[in-house]
Design a protein around this nucleic acid. Structure first.
Lengths: 296, 296
DNA sequence: AAAATGTCTTTTGACGATAAAAGACATTAT
DNA sequence: ATAATGTCTTTTATCGTCAAAAGACATTTT
């Protein structure tokens, strides 16, 4: 097989959600924009929907015949992109413990075990290398540097530099800048999540990422903005890894965010710095706690 | 063709330089270490040297028969790695002017024009993306962000943050740390280069990179150290691009380095900061001047 | 016995091929 | 005349393949 049609399958599943709403579907270009795919893929989706009796399709008219049933959806594991599959598989091995610093990474072996071609694994490793966890030996294997304490410290050092600077830039933005509206909306979301933290604590991770990305965007610096990808990646897996007292930790973080937001709104730089430092310090400590002692 | 044997050719050329010196060559493993290649490649090199009558090879004895002649060397363009070829070719187009921000980058077209496979071009673009000059649209083309003024400003902003921090860490290192010896040697090199700046100004670029990398290494932070790759890459092509008053500019930079070195040795943090700031400011201005107005 | 050599196996680097997905252009509908 | 559709071309994502290069192991030399 040359290429999986997961883009089509994923877009098809997302398109099923649009069926309930109206009486008929919008035009092909509009659907393409909504789903983030080309018209070619939209037309494949519409073809299948017609075949499965979900819609009646005749040129511009796309009448919805019935609501989608559970078995209309493609299975979740068929909608993942290859790079997601490889990333998950790779991170599972990395965090599963057996991964010692200095270990060699074998492209061919990885590809065989995951069941994909070597090209995809190579490309993944090249993209992954910017996270600072692996390193290439010229004309030879990759070396695992390990998810160690010093990795976490180096990562958070940069994070703190970048976020302090971004926060200061944010606080200095004119009050008519649309980011303040975004911040207000997020503040509201924080209150709602704290109120229901007992059941909704799992939603913290996503809100946390959106909040910090908003602040970093104020730096107007692509290197700072891009670096948040590294942080988000590490924290994403860290959250999956360390579940001890998750609701409690998340509630504290949310409260720190609220103080941080208040400081930003006040426009007082010393308060912004203080609130930012406090929050980043506890984020760092949480990250450090999740690294097993054995990895030093 | 599956793979070029440029590793072998490059190592062969470098190995020819070792022939003049002694009466016979060292062992295969030792040669491998010296040349940075495997024993397999070393043995291919020795085979060819024997065929060409350069050495007499019998097991451990590798007697040198004659000094290498100019036509013993492989042509320079056969010793470059594919990624170097692609990088040069890509940067030439980028700096040749026709490259407007927002332009699409076509993998297939690039591959055809350079005369290489698409896989190599894809891998190059993925690696290159960390320089912040291009961006990928999912399932689609790459977009050129352009070598613009704002790119230069974002790059130098990070550079200044990282280098100020590294310089402070450097100045605080214990006096018995081996980096001080390296710094002394480099100071000497600076004096020598300034004395002969009229003819040797072309050597500045390499010394500049070594000097700044030494300082960054004191940060003990992989993200700071790795970021110097981005700076080095941009300045490498910038130096090739902007040749106006090169000896003069380089002399000034060398003198700034000397003040910077003196400040580091003094251990006085305020002086280090001042010298570092002054040098980075003039480096930034030189970079900005080389960006054509038309690129805004 | 420690290191070097001879021989063989495995992995990396790079290519062409192919289905999926994007995109271009002419035609048709409102 | 603007936008949507039908049709066709081009590009991207991924694979299998193969030579170059690395690496492993047995054998030989000092």
């Amino acid at each position: 097989m040359a290429k999986q049609n997961n883009v089509y399958k994923d877009a098809y599943n997302r398109c099923l959600a649009l069926l309930g709403a109206g009486e008929s579907l919008p035009s092909e270009p509009e659907l393409g924009t909504t789903l983030g795919v080309s018209r070619t893929t939209v037309r494949s989706i519409l073809s299948r929907m017609e075949e499965r009796g979900l819609i009646e399709w005749n040129k511009r008219s796309k009448l919805v015949l019935r609501a989608p049933a559970p078995d209309d959806f493609f299975p979740d594991d068929e909608t993942d992109s290859l790079s997601q599959i490889i990333e998950r598989s790779f991170m599972r091995r990395l965090l599963a413990g057996g991964a010692q610093a200095g270990m060699q990474i074998n492209e061919l072996e990885l590809a065989r075990e995951i069941g994909v071609g070597t090209t995809s694994v190579r490309e993944f490793l090249i993209r992954f290398s910017r996270f600072g966890l692996i390193e290439k030996r010229r004309n030879s294997h990759w070396v695992l540097k390990g998810f160690t304490k010093s990795f976490a410290l180096e990562l958070t050092e940069i994070r703190e530099m970048f976020e302090l600077r971004s926060a200061a830039a944010f606080a200095a933005l004119a009050k008519d800048n649309p980011v303040w509206t975004d911040l207000d909306a997020m503040e509201q979301e924080h209150h709602e999540l704290i109120a229901a933290i007992g059941t909704r604590y799992g939603e913290f991770s996503e809100l946390d990422e959106r909040f910090h990305r908003l602040i970093h965007s104020a730096s107007h610096n692509r290197f700072i903005v891009d670096f948040y990808d590294v942080i988000a990646m590490i924290f994403h897996y860290h959250y999956q890894w360390n579940k001890t007292n998750e609701p409690g930790r998340n509630k504290i973080a949310l409260q720190e965010h609220l103080q941080y937001i208040a400081a930003l709104k006040s426009g007082k730089l010393d308060q912004v710095e203080k609130a930012c430092r406090r929050h980043l310090k506890s984020a760092r400590e949480t990250l450090l706690q999740s690294i097993p002692e054995s990895w030093q």
